[in-house]
Each structure stands twice: as structure tokens, then as C-alpha cells.
Write a protein that binds this DNA or RNA. Structure first.
Length: 472
RNA sequence: GUCGAGAUAACACAGCGGCUAUGUGUCGGACUGCAGAUCCGAAUACGGGAGUUCAACCCUCCCUCUCGACUCCA
């Protein structure tokens, strides 16, 4: 099977064909760095982290770019409140961002451009837009984009200019030729950070930084552009217009949008998690209660495009579900160490699982179905271990397989898990001792050993064919 | 109002025009000194109404409800 991606542009699943064979250029809209990130951001970050991981797993050379918006009204306002420079505020939140995504097990993108450091490219882009007749200047030094000049404005969000006109929520700005026009450059206002430009001092409009960064860091056209589905209009729509005005070609071949994370509001309704509704959960806080594996599992346990309602009980459920996979993983580790010798033909089973996993991921990154294949493998290997037919070699082979699969999902323990031979020797003594105590029915002492090991982070499980130990 | 997404068993979340979904939870069994893990088995389902079809949870139409975008937003 080949990778199929749902493309917002066409509203269909399409076969993925990169521009350059075996290479993928992808760009995902990042965050405005004026506050801590919340779980809604986390979802988007984890989704596209997983997309890039899967593409690499398939063998593509991926160049992944995510931006930081560090020039923005909200940043300026908050910096003013705190009496610090806007760029100091954003720099602090960028650092915090990296700490937060680390607690989510997210691999870093290749490049993280910032608006403030991309100013030459942004200004060049605006200049090109104006030179080609798609932009015009206003008396206050702003530059607006001439939407009417692009016949298919609304293509991504599947609306027409007529639809948009009738929305009745238009900005009546006398500087604009048309209410639908949007600012690519904003003339300076008192008290704002500003950069020199051919149109006087000012700063970029919201959408232009993405167009400019993509063009500079990745080129005129990229393979995949991603972001939350709340960005489809107007942000991505406008990005497309800006870029196409300059390059004459498409900006991205595949547009991917993740569904919103929702949560309950005060009145008991579900609503999108957002700052303005004050119904958000910060990553920082959630990460105190749940580990990164659980958080990733929770998000990957549903399709990226579906809406998802966040709740702590759901997180706890995810934790229990993931525990099953972890138990299996630990048991395999124990089996690889202490299990029977000899052959165990696990290859067909692993092959079957691989096929199911790849088919699921190829189908528009269906992580949920992919995870189901892992539960199937867990049940079968549990059975083999229960029957004592799983051997050390078979367990090792299965573990290698799981590690490879987990390079995509990032939900299994990454502790490399190699317990020393010394520890194994000591455990074996303790297990023998307990065996003797149990024969003599001195259960209090046997339990004491087991409990103390439990406190130390090791689980001891009695079974018909002898005790097994593993990490908790 | 315009555009888009969605309604699946107790819960969460997949899927397919006909074949046991998956996980958590619940119940029963195996194992067992206890604990835990594991295995085997069971029950509960496709919002409502029409239609297409030999056959629909899956396609079409209508209805109801939910969410998102149209304003800063992952």
C-alpha cells in the first residue's frame, strides 16, 4: 500500500507523491509565544511530530520547519503589562516551549524560524507582492493584499468571495480597497516594536511570516503544510494567496489539518480548548500527572482529524490501556533474559503486525488503527509466553520490532532496559530464597521480599513455572 | 446565514456494502497461599426517519443534536 493523505485542498485522500523523490519538505504553523502552551497545542505538535516520524520510518529524508510567531499584538500587550521588551518575553516562552515539548517526547523540528529574525525575507516578500500588483499601500504605511486579484480566493476553505462577502462580519477599514483585503504589512503605531521597511516603520501582518519563511527555508513549493483546522481560514488561505501572487505556483501540495481538542466549559457544554474561553489545560500541569507516553498515547489513540474531548478520566483510561502494552513489553524483556532457549518462529507474526501497522499509517496516518495492531501482537506474544513457547531469541526479535515501530509512536519505554548481569544474579538469589520460604509456608517473609522489591521499582510475579521479575 | 466536520455498546475510539473491531470497565472461568500479570469466554452498538441494494453501521435524501471556521487562535 502507498501512503495516502487527506488533503484539505481537495477534501479527498490522495496518494502521496513528493516533489523530489524520497524527500519531504514540510511546514507546520507553530505558536504565538506569549504564554505557556496548552493541551490543544500539544495535540497539534504530537500529531505532526508523528507524521514526520512516520515519513522518516518510511525512509524519506524529511525537512521539517515550524515557526514561532514572536511579533504580535498579544506579545506586545503582555510585554507592556510586564514592563519588559517584547522580544525578551517571547524568548522566555520559546525556551519554555522547548521544555514543554520535551515533556511530551516530541522530537525537535529541523528549523524553528522566528518572525523577528526573518524580517529581511518578510520584507522582500511584501515587496514582491507589491511589485506584482497584488499589494497596495495605505496612508499609515500599511500594505494590504488585493484579494480580488486572486480569482480563487477561498479555495482551501471551500468558499467563494461571494460567500465571504455575505458573512456580514467584515472589517470596514477605509484604507482597504475591499473589505476582504488583509494586511501583509502594518504601519507602526505608538509604543509598538517596528522594523524599517520601504513603506516606513512597521511590522509584518499575521500571515506573511509563514509565506516568507517557507519560501526562504524550504523553497517556492513544499510537500506538506500542516496546522490546526482553525487556521484554514483565513490564515492558510491568505498564505496561499501571498505565495501564489509571488511565485505563480502552488504553495503546498498537501494540506493537513488536525482536529480541535475540546473540553467542557463552565456550562457543561464542550467547546474548543482556547485561551479566551479559559477552558484550557497547560501542558506543564498535565505533565505533572501523566507521563509523556500516556499523553502521546491519548492523542494517538484517535485519528488526528477528529475532534477530541479532553478529560482527566480519559487520560486515566489511556494510562490503563497503555499499561497493557507496557506489561507486555516488560514481560518480553524478562523473557529475553530468562526465557527458554531455542527457536521460536515469531517472524510471521511480526510480519503480519508490520503489515497491519503500515497499512493503518499509510491510510492517512491512522494511528488508532496502528495501535490496534500492537494490542493484537501483545495478546499473541502473551499467549506464547504463557505457553512457554516464546524463547529468548523470539523475545529479542519481537523487542527489536517493537522498538522500530515505536520510533513512530513514542509510547513504549525508551530505557534501553538492559539490566546488568549482576542484578540478574541477585534477583535469581532472591527468587530462590522466596521459593524456599513459600515451600515452608513462611508467606510473611516471602511477601516482604516481594513488597520491598516493589518499592524499589521491580515487580515480582509468581507463576506456575517459577517467579518472574521485571521493571515496574 | 455561508462553509466544513461529526453523532458507534457503561466509557473512549476505529472500521468496512455481506466476514469476531480494539482498549478500559463489568461478569464468568483457568492459574493461585496472597498479590499481580496473563490467557479463555460473556454481555451491552452503530442519533431518528425514508430510499437504493440480494445485502447498509457503512451509499443517497430529509430531520434532530454537537463542534469548528467566517474575529486572535494548534
Amino acid at each position: 500500500m502507498t501512503l495516502m493523505i487527506h488533503n484539505t485542498l481537495t477534501n479527498r485522500k490522495e496518494k502521496f507523491v513528493p516533489i523530489v523523490p524520497d524527500e519531504v519538505k514540510m511546514y507546520v504553523c507553530g505558536v504565538t509565544v506569549y504564554d505557556d502552551i496548552h493541551m490543544g497545542h500539544a495535540r497539534s505538535i504530537i500529531v505532526f511530530d508523528t507524521v514526520s516520524r512516520y515519513l522518516r520510518y518510511l525512509g524519506y529524508k524529511v525537512t521539517f520547519v515550524t515557526n514561532f510567531t514572536d511579533v504580535d499584538d498579544k506579545i506586545i500587550n503582555r510585554a507592556n503589562e510586564r514592563g519588559i521588551a517584547p522580544l525578551d518575553l517571547s524568548a522566555a516562552y520559546i525556551e519554555k516551549y522547548f521544555r514543554d515539548i520535551e515533556s511530551l517526547g516530541v522530537r525537535r523540528a529541523d528549523i524553528y524560524p522566528q518572525a523577528s529574525t526573518s524580517m529581511p525575507y518578510i520584507i522582500q516578500m511584501v515587496k514582491d507582492i507589491v511589485d506584482r500588483g497584488y499589494g497596495y499601500t495605505a496612508p499609515d504605511g500599511s500594505v494590504y493584499f488585493r484579494v480580488r486579484k486572486m480569482a480563487d480566493y477561498g479555495r482551501l476553505s471551500h468558499r467563494t468571495i461571494k460567500d465571504l462577502r455575505s458573512s456580514g462580519r467584515l472589517d470596514e477599514n477605509p484604507d482597504k480597497e475591499d473589505p476582504l483585503d488583509f494586511a501583509v504589512w502594518k504601519g507602526v503605531k505608538p509604543g509598538e516594536v517596528a522594523w524599517d521597511s520601504p513603506w516606513g516603520k512597521g511590522r509584518p501582518g499575521w500571515h506573511i511570516e509563514c509565506s516568507a519563511m517557507i519560501r526562504h527555508y524550504l523553497g517556492d513549493v513544499i510537500d506538506i503544510h500542516g496546522g490546526g483546522n482553525d487556521l484554514i481560514f483565513p490564515h492558510h488561505e491568505n498564505e496561499i494567496m501571498q505565495t501564489e501572487a509571488v511565485t505563480g505556483g502552488p504553495l503546498a501540495h498537501y494540506w493537513m489539518h488536525n482536529g480541535m481538542l475540546e473540553t467542557k466549559t463552565a456550562d457543561g457544554q464542550t467547546a474548543k480548548m482556547s485561551k479566551s474561553l479559559k477552558n484550557f489545560f497547560k501542558v506543564e500541569d498535565v505533565a505533572k500527572k501523566f507521563d509523556k507516553y500516556t499523553i502521546r498515547f491519548y492523542f494517538l489513540n484517535t485519528h488526528y482529524s477528529s475532534p477530541l474531548a479532553y478529560g482527566e478520566d480519559n487520560m486515566a483510561e489511556a494510562q490503563n490501556a497503555l499499561k497493557r502494552l507496557w506489561n507486555n513489553y516488560r514481560d518480553l524483556q524478562a523473557c529475553a533474559r530468562d526465557g527458554p532457549l531455542g527457536d521460536c518462529p515469531v517472524a510471521p507474526l511480526l510480519e503480519k503486525t508490520r503489515t497491519a501497522f503500515n497499512d493503518a499509517m499509510d491510510d492517512d496516518f491512522n494511528t488508532r488503527a496502528a495501535i490496534e495492531s500492537l494490542f493484537g501482537l501483545a495478546r499473541e506474544t502473551n499467549r506464547l509466553m504463557g505457553e512457554r513457547t516464546m524463547t529468548r531469541d523470539g523475545a529479542l526479535e519481537t523487542l527489536d520490532f517493537l522498538k522500530d515501530i515505536d520510533s513512530v509512536l513514542g509510547i513504549l519505554p525508551d530505557d534501553a532496559g538492559r539490566d546488568s548481569d549482576d542484578l540478574a544474579a541477585v534477583m535469581s538469589i532472591l527468587i530462590d530464597l522466596r521459593k524456599e520460604l513459600r515451600v515452608r509456608k513462611q508467606y510473611d517473609l516471602a511477601d516482604l521480599i516481594r513488597n520491598r522489591l516493589g518499592e524499589a521499582g521491580y515487580v515480582l510475579e509468581d507463576a506456575a513455572d517459577g517467579a518472574k521479575w521485571k521493571k515496574a
